[in-house]
Simulated assay, not measured.
Amino acid sequence: MSVHSALEELARYRARNKRASQEVFEKGTLILQKNGHKKMGDEVWDFLEQLALAAIDVGRLEVADRCLRQLSDKFPQSPRVNCLAGIRLEASEPPETALKYYSDLLEADPTNVAVWKRRISVLRRMGQMEEAISELSQYLDTFYTDIEGWLELADIYACCNQYDYSLQALSHTLLLAPQNPVYALQFAETAYTAGDLPLSLKMFLMVIDMTDGDETECLSESTPLGITVRAWYGVKLCTRRMSRDPQLVTTSASGTSPPRHAAILDELATERLRVAYSSAGKKGDIAQGRGIVFSWVASP
């Protein structure tokens, strides 16, 4: 591969925020070896940061150190470079050392978002979940609109089997991004795990409403794809459990009203999953497990 094509490929990775550490490292070291970075102008700093992260990921710390030296010389005391240096520290030192490093940086600049997030990440990796939750909650009090932060908090709670708290965190993501079906699906699945089936069913149906074709397309003529299929699975799971244990229909910690036509929804979910796994042509990839799916939806 030529230096020019490698530079173009790495630029595309940066534009897409794609990590691809091994590929970035191989292309980046090729550029360094042939001194291609000296012709990049100001773009070289983004390249060096990208390569440093990739080198840390693949364990080539000497390359990361080379990049960091150039970045530190150009941007002394830069919060962004300091955070990158912390990531480098995490790769070779005990987590307590990295935690102390991040604490010192935050004491000097409490608004450094990247460093704050790295500190939370280290706490979680150390298994200090209560401290991580406390730190992340303080962070979100300051930076409420950070959706990634709310998702992280929801994930920590879920890992600790505290699903009600996880739902509370996810509710903030729905407020911040109400049109994102991925967040709605995560909320629905968490509600299912928490045992709030009426709420879970309601949210699965919302995902379907957000993703299942356009308004002019008749439901009977559409084919569920992608996230919509997963939501129909959720509907089927909810209605099946409700039919087996009627008490679950009215059991809702959130106070969600029970579904009026659970049996009809169950039949519709069965039909939609059959259609999804009977698709042909370019839609046929999903049909590979049709035998297992058909058997599952047909079972009582």
Rank of each mutant, 00 (worst) to 15 (best):
T250E: 10
T250N: 13
A253C: 06
F294N: 01
C238A: 12
V235A: 09
L237P: 00
P246D: 11
I264H: 04
T256L: 01
I286S: 13
S279H: 12
I264S: 13
F294I: 08
P258A: 01
L225E: 15
W232Q: 04
E271C: 00
Q288K: 00
V275F: 11
S278P: 01
M242N: 04
E271V: 14
R290E: 06
V293T: 03
F294T: 09
P300E: 01
I264A: 12
K236H: 14
S295I: 12
R272C: 03
D245I: 13
E267C: 05
L268G: 03
R290M: 01
K236P: 05
S243P: 00
T270H: 14
V293D: 02
Y277C: 12
A231G: 13
R240V: 09
W232T: 02
T250Q: 11
P246E: 11
T256E: 11
A298C: 12
R274S: 13
T239K: 09
G281I: 13
I227V: 14
V235P: 14
W296Q: 10
G255R: 06
G291C: 03
R260W: 05
A253L: 13
T239Q: 03
R230P: 03
I292W: 11
G226N: 15
M242H: 04
I227C: 08
S299H: 09
H261Y: 00
G289H: 07
S278R: 03
T239V: 02
V235R: 11
K282H: 15
T250M: 02
T239I: 05
A298W: 03
R272M: 05
K236V: 02
K236E: 14
S279I: 11
A287Q: 01
H261M: 04
T251W: 08
G284P: 03
P300L: 00
A280P: 02
R230D: 14
A263S: 06
V229P: 14
S279C: 09
W232G: 02
P300Y: 00
R240S: 12
R290Q: 01
T250R: 03
L237V: 00
A287L: 01
L265H: 11
L265G: 05
G284C: 08
Q247P: 00
V293C: 00
D285W: 05
I264W: 10
K282L: 15
R290S: 02
S252H: 03
